[in-house]
Structures are given as C-alpha cells and as structure tokens.
Amino acid sequence: MKLTLTAKIKIMPTTEQEQLLQKTMQTYRDACNAVSEVIFKENTLVQAKLHKMMYRELRSTFGLKSQMAQSVLKTVIAKYKTNQTNGHER
C-alpha cells in the first residue's frame, strides 16, 4: 500500500526572498495575461499551436525558465477550458 503524507508549512522568507517571490508571481501573471490575449485573438486552445506561437516569447520577454513557460501555457488553457465547461464564452 502506498502512503501519501501531506504537510502544511509556513515559510518565513527574508525581505529579499519575499521581494523575489513577489517579482516572480507578477512575472507569471503578466505572462499568463500575454498568453490569454493570444488565445482570445487566435481563438485556439491547442497547446501545441500555442507553444509554437508563445514559447520563445515567454522565455525571452518574460525571462521564464522552460518549466515555468510550460506551466503558464497549461494554466491559461485550463482556465479557458474551465470557463467553457461552465458555459462562459471566451
């Protein structure tokens, strides 16, 4: 039997770490907004197509590492699909 343990922890970042975290979160939000604009204009939720269109920009313009760039694409696509499932238009 496999056991999963979940822990809830409180982090105590230094002032510098907190500023870096805030900057990272803002960059992630800005990148999500950029992807959202492209999805809205192109009317597509196909990850491969969006990857081709946005990956390099996410890496260069926003300075995201590859895993975070992929996460941005997946996050925004998932939000749009959730909205569609709930009956909202794009």
Rank of each mutant, 00 (worst) to 15 (best):
M1H: 13
K2D: 09
L3H: 06
T4L: 11
L5G: 12
L5I: 14
T6Y: 03
T6I: 14
A7H: 14
A7Y: 13
I9F: 04
K10W: 06
M12E: 03
M12C: 12
P13W: 04
P13C: 11
P13I: 14
P13T: 14
P13F: 05
E16N: 12
Q17F: 11
Q19E: 01
Q22Y: 06
K23C: 11
K23W: 11
K23F: 08
T24N: 14
Q26G: 09
T27I: 10
Y28G: 07
Y28T: 15
Y28V: 11
D30V: 07
D30P: 03
D30Y: 14
A31I: 02
C32I: 04
N33F: 15
N33L: 12
A34D: 10
V35R: 01
V35G: 01
S36N: 08
E37Q: 12
V38W: 01
V38S: 04
I39G: 00
F40G: 09
F40R: 13
E42T: 05
T44C: 05
T44D: 01
L45E: 05
V46H: 06
Q47A: 09
L50G: 01
K52A: 13
K52F: 08
K52M: 15
M54G: 02
Y55R: 05
R56H: 14
E57P: 02
L58W: 00
L58I: 04
L58R: 00
S60E: 14
T61P: 02
T61C: 13
L64F: 01
K65V: 06
Q67G: 06
Q67I: 08
M68K: 01
A69W: 00
S71P: 06
S71K: 07
S71T: 09
V72G: 00
V72N: 00
V72Y: 00
V72L: 03
V72R: 02
L73Q: 01
V76M: 01
V76F: 00
I77C: 02
A78C: 11
K79Y: 05
K79L: 08
K79I: 03
K81V: 07
T82Y: 05
T82F: 03
N83K: 11
N83V: 10
Q84G: 11
Q84T: 10
T85P: 03
T85S: 10
N86V: 12
N86R: 02
G87N: 03
E89M: 13
E89F: 10
R90F: 12
